[in-house]
Nucleic acid binder design. Structure first.
Lengths: 64, 64
DNA sequence: ACAGAATGTTAGATATATATTTCATTATGT
DNA sequence: ACATAATGAAATATATATCTAACATTCTGT
């Protein structure tokens, strides 16, 4: 399944590298988070959410 | 300032040690997160949110 | 005042998120 | 088909979250 984060990023027209720069992360880190193979830190999740004009729940919360 | 997470924990009548056990963390880790001195992982934040019947936004999102 | 529980705090050890680098693969446009 | 951008993927290195253990402090009830 494709992550909500990836959907949000593509919708805003950002590339992985561009998003990474905005949140002070690397392209690889963004890619791994999108693939669900990482357990990112809260601060990074918040930075990503703000960069994509979403909230934590929007991107990282699973509706029971 | 006292964190929203601490308020939610106290409201549910849980001690730091009890919450820690439910989310497979240690009492010390819970204490440091409540004090805002940690940058916890997303998975831990999700576990804490569920244990306290809250969402990520409820506990870890700051209303701009 | 006392006892016990809850929380604070600190030091060292371990696990893992993240960075860095490099190369391969896939998409996009001309 | 070609060139370039975007993404995938793997190795090693570094930073830091988390654990463990121990002791100090504060709170709560009696």
């Amino acid at each position: 399944m494709v992550s909500k984060m990836k959907l949000a990023r593509v919708e805003t027209g950002l590339t992985q590298a561009q998003l990474a720069k905005q949140v002070n992360a690397t392209r690889q880190t963004i890619g791994l988070i999108e693939k669900g193979e990482y357990n990112p830190s809260l601060n990074l999740c918040i930075a990503i959410s703000k960069a994509l004009n979403k909230t934590l729940d929007d991107l990282f919360w699973e509706g029971d």
